[in-house]
Design a protein around this nucleic acid. Sequence first.
DNA 1: CCATATCTATATAGTCGCTGGAGATATAGT
DNA 2: ACTATATCTCCAGCGACTATATAGATATGG
Lengths: 137, 137
Amino acid sequence: MLTIGDLSRRTGVKVPTIRYYEQMGLIEPAERSEGNQRRYSRQERERLSFIKHARDLGLTIDSIRELLDLSVHPEQPCAQADRIAAEQLKAVRAKIEKLKRLESELDRIVAHCHGDQVKDCYVIRALANHDLCDNEH
Amino acid sequence: MLTIGDLSRRTGVKVPTIRYYEQMGLIEPAERSEGNQRRYSRQERERLSFIKHARDLGLTIDSIRELLDLSVHPEQPCAQADRIAAEQLKAVRAKIEKLKRLESELDRIVAHCHGDQVKDCYVIRALANHDLCDNEH
DNA sequence: CCATATCTATATAGTCGCTGGAGATATAGT
DNA sequence: ACTATATCTCCAGCGACTATATAGATATGG
């Protein structure tokens, strides 16, 4: 059995975050030692690793809860799990597109600035005047 | 003079957000009508547009406050404004890189899934088992 | 000139996913 | 037995809003 600190080190999830996940119902309330400290088994470590992995991929707590619910019904069709992952992929792609537009505008703003004083500064002027932008954002 | 609703429509910043910006000290407390309603001039509309533009570019409230402070000192060197924009650019690029890694992994996960049942589902299995990942994330 | 419709005011709480602190208790090592 | 470290619970805070409730102001049509 692992203490919460051990579990934290093995999964890379911080101790208060583990307790937070318990509170949010992502993991079951843990067994307790005589002195009321949480103790975890290998199964619980795996579940937490699953959660960590999904969070690293940007899935919301709600999506993860859904996936966890699905994973305990192995005979059901997996279309829903598919859908969750596909939607997340779509969201990630949309974010990338948006960030790329920001990148190109910021890049242009930074590259243009060669004034020495604020009154000539392209950064400031570009922000004050949307017309200097190339694209929508 | 514009009401807060007019200002909102002209800048695309929602009414409660304008009030929030006032509270945060990004914009000066507005003049008031006899009935205690906020009234805005053209100058204040421009300042809010500046803020909107900067927020759209992902700058934090704190960075925007710095830029606004700079913009009222036109004789000072603009190196700091430059630095703020350059740092934001760096942050945006880092986010793009991270999201691209997520994209490729999610894409791989989704593409692999052709099981019909949860027990064979690659989405679920991939999340449970980090070894199925190609790269770090 | 009044009824009504829309807008605005303030204050407060909620969102998401944690993170950190205070003060008390448990456990491990010597 | 003593000490150092880990853990416990509870609660507050982050950022940037967003929503809700209740009350008062203003604009419009008849």
